[in-house]
Nucleic acid binder design. Structure first.
Length: 554
RNA sequence: UGGGCCGUCGCCAAGCGGUUAAGGCACCGGGUUUUGAUCCCGGCAUUCGGAGGUUCGAAUCCUCCCGGCCCAGCCA
């Protein structure tokens, strides 16, 4: 429904790039990159960054690379690399170049040697603890390492030996020689290379030393000709170092690092470390659990790429430390599915209704519209019999005020069918309602009843032709709006966040739905055929989101 | 209390010296409706964290103050 090329909203980064374009910076070229570390699955926070980087490249007819920041072999794996590529593709983005920071290890090493030759980097043989104690504190300057004045020749030799594997992890480290008294701790002789005698997914055992983020990222950007290097706010303090490294070395260009605020969403938590914890502690069923804020989780839940992109467009890009309400995300998927999902009937918690005014063998084929606002979606045949199921909560013996569904002696319309009147409530020995007896008004099919108004409309399925299905309903994974702020976020987990309706009844065609097909089950919400568990024999649907419901509001 | 960053409606967010201070979400009405959905129409900041100052004119410039976020990995 949305025209795909609607103008993106203004934000400070686009304003800045407009100014760069105006000034002819980079010859008018715009190149961005999305640079994840392959140490976990992507979540909706990454989607914000992906939409920004790819969106800007598209807007300015530029390029956007996908680059894996794989400089810490201890944490990274191929599994994550593949998952990240799948997620970006599923979102609908195509990267211009696919790179790995490890592709640049040779060049990076040469840059480091260059720095040593300029006297701007040195090998420090202090232990990690010693380094920490010499770094100073937030308010006190650090002190210089006793190894800071080694000669260029000594440094060159030591660094070569580090590379050759002559030392163990932690024995030495390559540091930039900047300023131990800087107010910015990142400038107090930051580490550039550390010894890590473990093999790397892509470079195997070739390297005994691996470059640090601060040395790698800026140079990788420069090597790729990135013009605008967009990252989150916590890297703002690293920008002076980013610029320092590039300024010392002979690089193809000097990208501009620009920081924006990370996404924060209510009732969830976007921290890789903690998401891993949820998975490992089995608080969720995996990275693709429909309650997870991961791309895989949102996908399985039924969110569409379009809805996520719409979400990113709506929340904007700023440096404000803002927290987005869940309602925004839900509105995005409702808007998409309202326009694009076909309607079906399904009863989550069925109760049988016998229409006693109809003969036992009554069978009638009705025609239902697949979409109320879109004729082109067509119609489908829908069978009506003497026995149907309606939602248990659509009948009330003692209705609350303003209840407009079925009550004893009351009338309600079966959606797309007749108006029925409840004549008897059948209970078992325990006093539970097991069945309702109703009569129908034969003169109300496709027309309003004579002389009275019947407000309530209730969805239903035929007892004879409907199929049993499993339908999962979800609530937020956390019971508090800011679980990350809690002492132990795991105690904030909402233990009742999944409700499995295993006796739901669905109209028969639904069993044939391909996995990941989305529908609106009228009056109960938007649902998706589960991409893993759904089959024709055992249909399984997940509720993506409920319909907006003014009546249900607390 | 060192350095960096941020404060515009309940939640986001445009705005960049002259606007009646956009828009979205949420909320509150009202209309249409065989989904209490959708859709439509209307309402919703005389005010921009606070106080001073500059200016004919300030959310936009200056000063001070208040509040919040980030940084002391051989993680990214």
């Amino acid at each position: 429904m949305n025209q795909d090329d609607s103008k993106p909203g203004a934000n400070f980064i686009r304003n800045l790039i407009d100014a760069d374009q105006q000034a002819g910076k980079h010859g008018g070229r715009v190149t961005t990159r999305f640079p994840p570390e392959p140490n976990g699955y992507l979540h909706i926070g990454h989607v914000k960054s992906i939409c920004l980087n790819f969106g800007i490249a598209k807007q300015y007819n530029g390029q956007c690379n996908l680059r894996f920041d794989d400089t810490n072999p201890a944490k990274e794996s191929e599994e994550y690399v593949n998952a990240i590529k799948d997620d970006v593709s599923w979102l609908g983005f195509e990267w211009s170049g696919l790179h790995h920071a490890s592709d640049y290890f040779d060049q990076l090493y040469d840059f480091a040697v260059d720095l040593i030759k300029q006297g701007k980097a040195y090998v420090d043989s202090s232990s990690a603890e010693e380094m920490r104690s010499m770094r100073g504190t937030l308010t006190e300057p650090g002190i210089e390492s006793p190894y800071r004045n080694r000669t260029i020749e000594q440094n060159l030799e030591l660094f070569a030996s580090m590379k050759a594997g002559e030392f163990d992890d932690g024995e030495h480290i390559l540091r930039a020689k900047i300023d131990m008294t800087s107010g910015n701790i990142n400038m107090r002789d930051p580490a550039l290379y550390r010894i890590r005698k473990i093999s790397h997914v892509r470079t195997g055992d070739k390297w005994n030393i691996y470059p640090m983020y601060d040395f790698t990222h800026c140079l990788s950007d420069a090597i790729e000709g990135i013009t605008h290097s967009l990252c989150t706010l916590e890297f703002a303090d690293h920008r002076p170092l980013y610029d320092w490294v590039i300024d010392q070395l002979d690089t193809p260009c000097h990208p501009q690092q620009i920081e924006f605020a990370r996404l924060q969403l209510e009732y969830t938590m976007l921290s890789k470390r903690r998401l891993i914890q949820l998975v490992n502690d089995k608080l969720v069923d995996g990275w693709d659990d429909p309650r997870m804020p991961t791309v895989l989780g949102l996908r399985r839940r039924g969110y569409t790429p379009e809805s996520l992109k719409d979400f990113c467009e709506r929340i904007g890009i700023t440096k404000n430390d803002s927290v987005i309400e869940m309602a925004v995300l839900e509105t995005c998927i409702r808007d998409d599915l309202n326009a694009n999902a076909e309607r079906r009937l399904a009863v989550l918690d069925p109760i049988k209704v016998v229409i006693t005014s109809l003969p036992k063998e009554h069978s009638q084929t009705l025609s239902f519209q697949n979409h109320p606002q879109d004729e082109s979606a067509g119609t489908r045949a829908y069978e009506f019999n003497r026995e149907v199921y309606i939602e248990r909560e659509d009948f009330a013996e003692n209705p609350p005020p303003k209840y407009q569904r079925l009550v004893p002696g009351g009338e309600v319309r079966l959606r797309g069918c007749y108006i029925i009147k409840c004549t008897d409530v059948i209970k078992n020995d325990a006093g539970e309602i097991v069945e309702l007896h109703c009569t129908h008004d034969p003169d109300t099919l496709g027309k309003k009843p004579e002389g009275r108004k019947v407000k309530g409309v209730v969805h239903w399925v035929s007892a004879k032709t409907s199929l049993t299905a499993t339908i999962r309903l979800y609530d937020p994974l956390f019971s508090t709006s800011n679980p990350a702020a809690a002492e132990s976020f795991e105690s904030e987990v909402n233990v009742d966040s999944v409700t499995v309706m295993s006796n739901a009844r669905i109209e028969p065609s639904l069993a044939q739905a391909a996995p990941e097909t989305r529908f609106q089950f009228e009056r109960t919400g938007y649902f998706v055929a589960d991409r893993i568990d759904h089959s024709q024999q055992a249909p399984v649907f997940n509720r993506v989101v409920t319909l907006r419901d003014v009546w249900a509001k607390p």
